[in-house]
Design a protein around this nucleic acid. Structure first.
Lengths: 226, 226
DNA sequence: GTCTATAGTCGGATAGAC
DNA sequence: GTCTATCCGACTATAGAC
């Protein structure tokens, strides 16, 4: 596995092809031959550069996490700051939630490319492989903590309480479902792809429901705590 | 493909093994050898009874849909009836929503077996194969229509409006996320499996959030309609 | 209807020339 | 670092005996 190799182009071409093909067909259903052909490189480059097909998959996972973090971490950091600052008011929290929804919708369903990368993350969620922790530590944990921090500000509950984490997950689910159920969404809309106004409509539905949820969140139903 | 074959036992043993193994590993990663061994039948029984591995997969899909319909259709029918009856009040709608949440949580994460069958449905959602329509027509459509009917009763919007269908999907997402993100949930809880009290806590979180959403649903924000 | 044996294909990884 | 050629194992499906 030559790290300081001269030509990084072959590596990157394989990673780019892997992002697309592993997302489209999954790990098992994507053969090294098809991968190499799509990347326009030689078959033997996969074992050479990545130690094998699985090594390429891990490299793809790390590449995805790196680019997701670039988009998400600033928004997560803002949410954590708003959640922690004693001066934050309800308006600040709502505004941070809007930002979270918008960036997450964009990363999950905003573009064809983002749909491809989010597809790989979903596959890992549903059927975790040894690569799962790359996505969990790199993306999910931060998303849950960001939501929990904001919810904590509104409810006074500890950000690491079970209830807040379940609520954070549930809210994330309202966004994720539009990626998970994309096939169903498209069938309902009788379309092949989503238009920008559909994406906007989805973001608005989610935002309005999040606002409704947090509006009813204090006081918290005590029987929900576990 | 002998339909009126004498021994249905071999067929059923293969379908049962398929439900488990296709769910655990996916279609591509499940070999006919492992399938036959797990079912305790001969390898050649797969092409003989189902025409091939793909035929077995479709038979598994239809078997899953049949058993899901048995659990879900009565609750869906009740929701549609409540949504359509002019005499239904807000309390009736909320009660029907509670029933929907409980039965859906049970079918998605209630038992180890239900987690297995829901896994196959999720795989089809994320990476649809030609079997997708079996699940869409058999299960998803009914779930969306049931929620849309109840939301329609509360908002006065048409049950087939885009907004109501998106809201129905979003609510379904709050439930589905706990199945999709099971690996993340378990990691957050630092557990290997869910205990009954966790399942109850999940149902309560979803119900309280659905109630909050519908509480703020009339009047409906007009800018959301598309 | 169920079995054994095997055909035919495709998978990932490697050897070795350049 | 990249190529061609090839190995070898695993796969699904089939032929044919019982």
């Amino acid at each position: 596995m030559p790290r300081a190799a001269a030509n990084t182009s072959t590596r990157q071409k394989l990673i780019d092809a892997g992002k697309r093909l592993f997302g489209l067909h999954g790990f098992e259903a994507t053969s090294t031959r098809v991968l190499a052909a799509a990347a326009g490189v030689n078959l033997a480059a996969i074992p050479y550069h990545f130690g094998g097909k699985e090594g390429l998959y891990h490299a793809v996972a790390q590449d995805i996490v790196a680019s997701e973090k670039a988009s998400l971490d600033p928004v997560f950091a803002h949410a954590l700051a708003v959640g922690a600052a004693p001066s934050s008011g309800r308006t600040d929290v709502i505004e941070a939630m809007r930002s979270l929804v918008r960036v997450l919708v964009a990363e999950l369903i905003g573009t064809a490319e983002s749909q491809n990368t989010s597809q790989i993350m979903l596959q890992e969620q549903i059927a975790p492989t040894p690569a799962f922790h790359i996505f969990f530590d790199g993306v999910y944990r931060g998303a849950i903590e960001a939501w929990a921090a904001l919810l904590s500000r509104l409810t006074g509950l500890a950000p690491d309480s079970l209830e807040l984490r379940l609520r954070a997950l549930s809210i994330l689910g309202q966004i994720t479902i539009f990626r998970v159920g994309m096939a169903a969404v498209l069938r309902l809309l009788e379309r092949e792809t989503l238009a920008p106004e559909h994406i906007e409509a989805i973001a608005e539905v989610v935002i309005s429901q999040v606002e409704a949820i947090v509006a009813g969140l204090s006081p918290i139903p005590p029987e929900v705590a576990a």
